[in-house]
Design a protein around this nucleic acid. Structure first.
Lengths: 201, 201
DNA sequence: CTTGCATTTTACCGGTCGGTCAACTAGCAT
DNA sequence: ATGCTAGTTGACCGACCGGTAAAATGCAAG
């Protein structure tokens, strides 16, 4: 309740880069505590379990993402389809800068965690799903405005938005397998070629 | 050297579904040994390390995949673009049947492992990368034949093949986050809308 | 029958895992 | 001053981790 419970945020700050760079199972509480200069008992004062920590970490990443270049990319002032270009660009530069600092492409922590834990923990899966759903909505809104403004031919905005999100995650996955963010640069722009037509009567 | 070293294959058979359903870090040697009815010392007679086991498991999955419906899908007798439809269909039905049996969408083990280990183990990453590269080549060959046969307009077959592979992995990832293979059915066919134009003179 | 090798068994290693507990400290309100 | 509470400490839990070593088997070739 004092200056923002320093300990708690130091724990999260120590956990974030580790979970991003490795995996949920491979990062232990002990290591996090040591790096944060916190005792284990103190850790469990703030987080009932490891799962609660990763939840908090996911939330922080989601906030970073939403308030960072995603907010810029989905700027209503930009023509709709340019926002998508902007987002791809931003993802590319982000991964590239991480690689420069860290030596490796770390990819998307939401994708990473999804494939690792979603068969083992439905609560975590639900949390990650909610984040993807929000991201999809961003795409969908953008597509709707693009259609309304006559920038693109009408299509199923909901499904196409989902397809675009899937494509982005897939490109990041493949880039990670090559440890090379440049793949994002080469494949990214093709996201705009994805189209799912409206079905219906 | 006798009847195909029963023990070794029983270990792999026990390991496969576990690594597919959970994660590399979350499945222990001990559990695999118990399930295979093998002593730990015996395990280490056949596999120098856990990493060697996962390598063998990856190889077996790759074989299953290559000799299973992928071989059917990329049947040269089919019109090129239909092969891609066929592949998506096959992936859909496969994930669906797994979910019926197992209760969960397990996704693609190559994608799962890539996101989990590729920042931590370059040898595993290289192995997984090789599998993706082979898959990409299948797409590329198919696209080349589609272009040659006039089924589609010319494009950059190499990049488009990579984009298609990325899209497939991304759709599987998103489907796993929803624990719902139906997403593959809805989004899969849009893979054919992906296009990356040839650059250059 | 014996040698030699592949295989298997069993016990064991140090280390780490996520998590618990009781004692203690500090600050604040009554 | 007292009591309450949030926070902290450090020792501890049983279970499991990946991996090792040595002795005991089974079996086949000489």
């Amino acid at each position: 309740m004092n200056i923002a419970s320093d300990t708690r945020s130091r724990i999260i700050a120590a956990a974030k880069p580790r979970f991003h760079a490795r995996s949920y199972a491979n990062v232990g509480i002990q290591e996090i505590c040591e790096s944060a200069g916190v005792q284990k008992g103190s850790f469990y004062h703030f987080f009932p379990s490891k799962r609660d920590l990763i939840m908090a970490v996911i939330d922080e990443f989601a906030d970073d993402w939403a308030n960072g270049f995603v907010a810029e990319a989905f700027d209503p002032a930009l023509p709709p389809m340019e926002r998508i270009d902007y987002l791809i660009d931003a993802a590319y530069f982000w991964q590239k800068s991480i690689k420069q600092v860290h030596g490796r492409m770390l990819g998307c922590i939401f994708g990473n965690l999804t494939l690792e834990v979603s068969t083992q923990d439905d609560i975590l899966r639900a949390k990650l799903l909610a984040i993807f759903t929000r991201a999809k909505t961003r795409f969908k809104d953008t597509l709707e405005q693009a259609v309304a403004g006559g920038f693109i031919a009408p299509l199923d905005t909901s499904l196409t938005a989902e397809a675009m999100l899937a494509y982005l995650e897939g490109v990041i996955l493949l880039a990670k397998s090559q440890n090379d963010p440049e793949l994002l640069y080469r494949l990214g722009p093709a996201i705009k070629t994805l189209r799912i037509e409206k079905t219906g009567t």
